[in-house]
Design a protein around this nucleic acid. Structure first.
Length: 215
DNA sequence: TACCAGGAGAAAA
DNA sequence: TTTTCTCATGGT
């Protein structure tokens, strides 16, 4: 199967996804940092704390004491680390003139700038570009690696940039398409690939190496 | 009880 | 330069 064929299969199986779950672009950026190696439900709790405390803005987060911010972020895990990362992102965002200030920047330059922010690695940068700013930057996550490795399209050991180029060169450069595809990959990863027995209800069961091995 | 979740940075080899 | 370690809560 090709990358395009897999997309079509996922779309038929799971239907259109409405991503990213957030009320503002800034909230997407916060979520992108908090979800690092963390289940989304725990991120929701942490963002809920920020909303309850009425500090969900770059200025209030930068102004908040580190210990207080860490306490609000506690449900999302790694709270001390994420407090520093969130402050760094907010400080950078303020320097850029807020979310609106980013709109003038070309995507490659914006991506490089994001990667220069403490705590923003390639996946977080692409999630911010795609889901907060509507830029066509494909997000490669652990689900994508796992699924496409099992389907035999990749080895799984490729570095992030190699995989991003593979996906972006295989698809039209369309943010809506990238958004939908990554969301479908995550939904599939949660719905099928992690349930036991593995891939019992996988729409790729006939082609997935893990499904064959466990059947 | 053990494992994993929508990673990234620092330290060690 | 590449690999390993650390950060940490909450759900299954």
């Amino acid at each position: 199967m090709t990358i395009v064929q897999i997309y079509k299969k996922l779309l038929v199986t799971y239907g259109p996804q409405q991503w990213w779950p957030a009320n503002s672009k800034f909230e997407v950026m916060v979520g992108a940092v908090l979800t690092q190696n963390t289940a989304w439900i725990n991120v929701e709790h942490a963002i809920g704390n920020l909303k309850k405390a009425k500090v969900l803005s770059p200025e209030t987060i930068v102004a908040a004491p580190a210990a207080q911010l860490a306490a609000w972020l506690k449900p999302s895990g790694y709270f001390n680390v994420k407090a520093k990362r969130l402050k760094a992102l907010c400080q950078w965002l303020i320097q850029q003139g807020g979310v609106r200030g980013l709109s003038k920047m070309p995507t490659p330059a914006l991506r490089e700038a994001l990667l220069g922010v403490h705590g923003v690695g390639p996946e977080t940068a692409d999630a911010i570009l795609l889901y907060a700013l509507g830029r066509p930057s494909f997000v490669i996550d652990t689900y994508a690696r796992r699924i496409f490795q099992r389907l035999g399209l990749i080895k799984g050991t490729e570095d992030y940039e190699t995989l991003r180029r593979l996906f972006e060169s295989s698809l039209d450069s369309d943010a809506a398409l990238f958004n939908q595809y990554h969301a479908l990959i995550v939904v599939h990863g949660k719905e099928a690939c992690r349930k036991k027995p593995l891939c019992a209800n996988c729409c790729f069961a006939a082609r997935c190496s893990t499904a064959v091995k466990n059947s």
